[in-house]
Amino acid sequence: MNPLRLVGLLFGLVSAAVILASKAVATRSVTHYLAQTPHDAAPEPVPATAEAAPATEGRSSAVLVTRVALGAVGLGVLVVGVWKVLHAVHPENYLWLLLWLAAAVVLHDGVLDPLLTLLRSASHRGLRRLPDAALAVVKGAFVLAGLLVLVVVPMIYAKHLGPLNPTILPGDYGARLVASLFVIAVFTAAAAALVAVRAKKRPRAQPRTQSPSVELAQR
Protein backbone atom coordinates (compact mmCIF):
# COMPACT_ATOMS: atom_id res chain seq x y z
CA MET A 1 0.00 0.00 0.00
CA ASN A 2 1.14 3.52 -0.83
CA PRO A 3 2.47 5.17 2.39
CA LEU A 4 0.55 8.37 1.52
CA ARG A 5 -2.68 6.38 1.64
CA LEU A 6 -1.77 5.11 5.09
CA VAL A 7 -1.17 8.68 6.26
CA GLY A 8 -4.52 9.70 4.79
CA LEU A 9 -6.25 6.82 6.49
CA LEU A 10 -4.66 7.64 9.86
CA PHE A 11 -5.63 11.29 9.44
CA GLY A 12 -9.20 10.26 8.66
CA LEU A 13 -9.42 7.94 11.66
CA VAL A 14 -7.92 10.52 14.04
CA SER A 15 -10.27 13.26 12.83
CA ALA A 16 -13.18 10.86 13.15
CA ALA A 17 -12.19 10.13 16.74
CA VAL A 18 -11.80 13.84 17.53
CA ILE A 19 -15.19 14.70 16.04
CA LEU A 20 -16.93 11.85 17.84
CA ALA A 21 -15.33 12.83 21.17
CA SER A 22 -16.21 16.52 20.85
CA LYS A 23 -19.72 15.56 19.81
CA ALA A 24 -20.09 13.45 22.95
CA VAL A 25 -18.91 16.37 25.10
CA ALA A 26 -21.29 18.77 23.34
CA THR A 27 -24.23 16.39 23.77
CA ARG A 28 -23.47 15.99 27.46
CA SER A 29 -23.31 19.74 28.07
CA VAL A 30 -26.52 20.38 26.11
CA THR A 31 -28.31 17.64 28.08
CA HIS A 32 -26.96 19.13 31.29
CA TYR A 33 -28.19 22.61 30.29
CA LEU A 34 -31.66 21.34 29.35
CA ALA A 35 -31.96 19.42 32.63
CA GLN A 36 -31.48 22.66 34.56
CA THR A 37 -34.61 24.36 33.22
CA PRO A 38 -37.44 23.98 35.79
CA HIS A 39 -40.21 22.44 33.71
CA ASP A 40 -37.89 19.87 32.17
CA ALA A 41 -36.71 18.80 35.60
CA ALA A 42 -40.26 17.68 36.47
CA PRO A 43 -40.72 13.92 36.02
CA GLU A 44 -42.31 12.99 32.72
CA PRO A 45 -45.70 11.35 33.09
CA VAL A 46 -45.65 7.83 31.66
CA PRO A 47 -47.77 7.80 28.50
CA ALA A 48 -50.68 5.40 28.68
CA THR A 49 -49.82 3.43 25.55
CA ALA A 50 -50.68 -0.17 24.87
CA GLU A 51 -47.13 -1.24 25.66
CA ALA A 52 -46.92 0.44 29.05
CA ALA A 53 -50.38 -0.64 30.13
CA PRO A 54 -50.67 -4.22 31.38
CA ALA A 55 -51.57 -6.08 28.21
CA THR A 56 -52.95 -9.58 27.96
CA GLU A 57 -50.43 -12.43 27.83
CA GLY A 58 -51.29 -13.46 24.27
CA ARG A 59 -50.88 -10.00 22.88
CA SER A 60 -47.49 -9.33 24.40
CA SER A 61 -46.12 -12.69 23.25
CA ALA A 62 -47.43 -11.96 19.73
CA VAL A 63 -45.58 -8.63 19.85
CA LEU A 64 -42.44 -10.43 20.98
CA VAL A 65 -42.71 -13.04 18.21
CA THR A 66 -43.24 -10.30 15.61
CA ARG A 67 -40.22 -8.38 16.88
CA VAL A 68 -38.00 -11.46 16.87
CA ALA A 69 -39.17 -12.38 13.36
CA LEU A 70 -38.54 -8.85 12.04
CA GLY A 71 -35.17 -8.78 13.77
CA ALA A 72 -34.21 -12.12 12.22
CA VAL A 73 -35.20 -10.92 8.74
CA GLY A 74 -33.17 -7.73 9.27
CA LEU A 75 -30.15 -9.70 10.45
CA GLY A 76 -30.42 -12.03 7.45
CA VAL A 77 -30.54 -9.11 5.01
CA LEU A 78 -27.54 -7.54 6.78
CA VAL A 79 -25.52 -10.75 6.45
CA VAL A 80 -26.36 -11.04 2.74
CA GLY A 81 -25.43 -7.36 2.28
CA VAL A 82 -22.07 -7.74 3.98
CA TRP A 83 -21.39 -10.92 2.00
CA LYS A 84 -22.19 -9.16 -1.29
CA VAL A 85 -20.13 -6.09 -0.43
CA LEU A 86 -17.10 -8.16 0.52
CA HIS A 87 -17.35 -9.88 -2.87
CA ALA A 88 -17.97 -6.70 -4.85
CA VAL A 89 -15.09 -4.77 -3.28
CA HIS A 90 -11.48 -5.75 -3.84
CA PRO A 91 -9.85 -6.88 -0.54
CA GLU A 92 -7.21 -4.15 -1.00
CA ASN A 93 -9.99 -1.58 -0.66
CA TYR A 94 -11.64 -2.94 2.49
CA LEU A 95 -10.00 -0.24 4.60
CA TRP A 96 -11.31 2.45 2.27
CA LEU A 97 -14.75 0.93 2.38
CA LEU A 98 -14.58 1.10 6.17
CA LEU A 99 -13.43 4.71 5.98
CA TRP A 100 -16.34 5.63 3.67
CA LEU A 101 -18.83 3.95 5.97
CA ALA A 102 -17.26 5.70 8.98
CA ALA A 103 -17.34 9.01 7.11
CA ALA A 104 -21.12 8.73 6.87
CA VAL A 105 -21.32 8.37 10.65
CA VAL A 106 -18.87 11.25 11.16
CA LEU A 107 -20.82 13.51 8.80
CA HIS A 108 -24.03 12.67 10.59
CA ASP A 109 -22.75 12.88 14.15
CA GLY A 110 -20.10 15.54 13.64
CA VAL A 111 -21.83 17.94 11.25
CA LEU A 112 -25.52 17.28 10.80
CA ASP A 113 -26.36 16.48 14.39
CA PRO A 114 -24.69 19.56 15.97
CA LEU A 115 -26.35 21.76 13.34
CA LEU A 116 -29.75 20.28 14.12
CA THR A 117 -29.13 20.62 17.87
CA LEU A 118 -28.39 24.32 17.36
CA LEU A 119 -31.46 24.76 15.19
CA ARG A 120 -33.56 22.95 17.75
CA SER A 121 -32.40 25.03 20.67
CA ALA A 122 -32.87 28.21 18.63
CA SER A 123 -36.44 27.31 17.72
CA HIS A 124 -37.24 25.66 21.05
CA ARG A 125 -38.83 28.63 22.77
CA GLY A 126 -41.06 29.71 19.91
CA LEU A 127 -42.20 26.30 18.79
CA ARG A 128 -43.04 24.71 22.13
CA ARG A 129 -45.95 27.10 22.59
CA LEU A 130 -47.67 25.15 19.83
CA PRO A 131 -49.96 22.27 20.74
CA ASP A 132 -48.29 18.88 20.50
CA ALA A 133 -50.04 17.86 17.27
CA ALA A 134 -49.22 21.14 15.51
CA LEU A 135 -45.61 20.85 16.64
CA ALA A 136 -45.45 17.41 15.02
CA VAL A 137 -46.63 18.91 11.72
CA VAL A 138 -43.98 21.65 11.91
CA LYS A 139 -41.27 19.11 12.77
CA GLY A 140 -42.30 16.95 9.82
CA ALA A 141 -42.12 19.95 7.52
CA PHE A 142 -38.61 20.74 8.78
CA VAL A 143 -37.53 17.18 8.00
CA LEU A 144 -39.04 17.39 4.51
CA ALA A 145 -37.51 20.80 3.77
CA GLY A 146 -34.13 19.74 5.17
CA LEU A 147 -34.00 16.62 3.00
CA LEU A 148 -34.99 18.64 -0.05
CA VAL A 149 -32.20 21.13 0.63
CA LEU A 150 -29.70 18.28 1.09
CA VAL A 151 -30.69 16.84 -2.29
CA VAL A 152 -30.87 20.08 -4.26
CA VAL A 153 -27.93 22.16 -2.96
CA PRO A 154 -25.29 19.84 -4.51
CA MET A 155 -27.14 20.18 -7.84
CA ILE A 156 -27.05 23.98 -7.61
CA TYR A 157 -23.34 23.77 -6.85
CA ALA A 158 -22.72 21.40 -9.77
CA LYS A 159 -24.67 23.67 -12.10
CA HIS A 160 -22.58 26.60 -10.87
CA LEU A 161 -19.42 24.65 -11.81
CA GLY A 162 -20.85 24.16 -15.30
CA PRO A 163 -22.34 20.89 -16.62
CA LEU A 164 -20.59 18.95 -19.38
CA ASN A 165 -23.47 19.28 -21.84
CA PRO A 166 -26.94 20.87 -22.03
CA THR A 167 -28.81 17.64 -21.18
CA ILE A 168 -27.20 17.53 -17.71
CA LEU A 169 -28.83 19.70 -15.02
CA PRO A 170 -31.05 21.63 -17.43
CA GLY A 171 -33.32 23.24 -14.80
CA ASP A 172 -33.21 26.38 -12.68
CA TYR A 173 -32.88 24.47 -9.42
CA GLY A 174 -32.37 27.48 -7.13
CA ALA A 175 -35.71 29.03 -8.10
CA ARG A 176 -37.45 25.66 -7.90
CA LEU A 177 -36.02 25.04 -4.44
CA VAL A 178 -37.18 28.44 -3.17
CA ALA A 179 -40.64 27.88 -4.67
CA SER A 180 -40.87 24.37 -3.17
CA LEU A 181 -39.81 25.59 0.27
CA PHE A 182 -42.43 28.33 0.02
CA VAL A 183 -45.12 25.78 -0.88
CA ILE A 184 -44.03 23.56 2.02
CA ALA A 185 -44.13 26.56 4.38
CA VAL A 186 -47.64 27.58 3.27
CA PHE A 187 -49.04 24.07 3.56
CA THR A 188 -47.35 23.58 6.93
CA ALA A 189 -48.72 26.83 8.33
CA ALA A 190 -52.21 25.92 7.15
CA ALA A 191 -52.01 22.37 8.50
CA ALA A 192 -50.50 23.46 11.83
CA ALA A 193 -53.18 26.14 12.28
CA LEU A 194 -55.92 23.63 11.49
CA VAL A 195 -54.49 21.08 13.91
CA ALA A 196 -54.00 23.72 16.62
CA VAL A 197 -57.59 24.94 16.31
CA ARG A 198 -58.92 21.39 16.51
CA ALA A 199 -56.71 20.63 19.53
CA LYS A 200 -58.07 23.71 21.29
CA LYS A 201 -61.70 22.79 20.62
CA ARG A 202 -61.44 19.16 21.67
CA PRO A 203 -61.06 19.54 25.48
CA ARG A 204 -64.36 21.48 25.76
CA ALA A 205 -66.24 18.55 24.32
CA GLN A 206 -64.98 16.30 27.12
CA PRO A 207 -66.01 16.53 30.80
CA ARG A 208 -63.21 18.23 32.72
CA THR A 209 -63.06 15.77 35.59
CA GLN A 210 -61.82 12.87 33.51
CA SER A 211 -58.14 12.01 33.32
CA PRO A 212 -56.51 11.49 29.90
CA SER A 213 -56.28 7.72 30.37
CA VAL A 214 -60.02 7.40 31.04
CA GLU A 215 -60.64 9.56 28.02
CA LEU A 216 -58.46 7.21 26.00
CA ALA A 217 -60.33 4.17 27.24
CA GLN A 218 -63.69 5.65 26.24
CA ARG A 219 -62.76 6.12 22.62
Binding site: H39, D40, A42, E44, P45, R128, P131, D132, L135, A136, K139, A199, K200, P203, P212
Partner: peptide, 15 residues
Amino acid sequence: PQDREAGGTRREATT
Protein backbone atom coordinates in the same frame (compact mmCIF):
# COMPACT_ATOMS: atom_id res chain seq x y z
CA PRO B 1 -56.04 25.66 30.72
CA GLN B 2 -54.55 23.68 27.82
CA ASP B 3 -51.56 22.82 29.97
CA ARG B 4 -53.76 21.40 32.69
CA GLU B 5 -55.74 19.43 30.13
CA ALA B 6 -52.51 17.96 28.83
CA GLY B 7 -51.92 16.17 32.10
CA GLY B 8 -50.88 18.78 34.67
CA THR B 9 -47.35 19.53 33.49
CA ARG B 10 -46.20 20.93 30.22
CA ARG B 11 -44.23 18.08 28.68
CA GLU B 12 -41.45 18.47 26.21
CA ALA B 13 -43.05 17.31 22.99
CA THR B 14 -41.53 14.08 21.77
CA THR B 15 -42.02 12.51 18.37
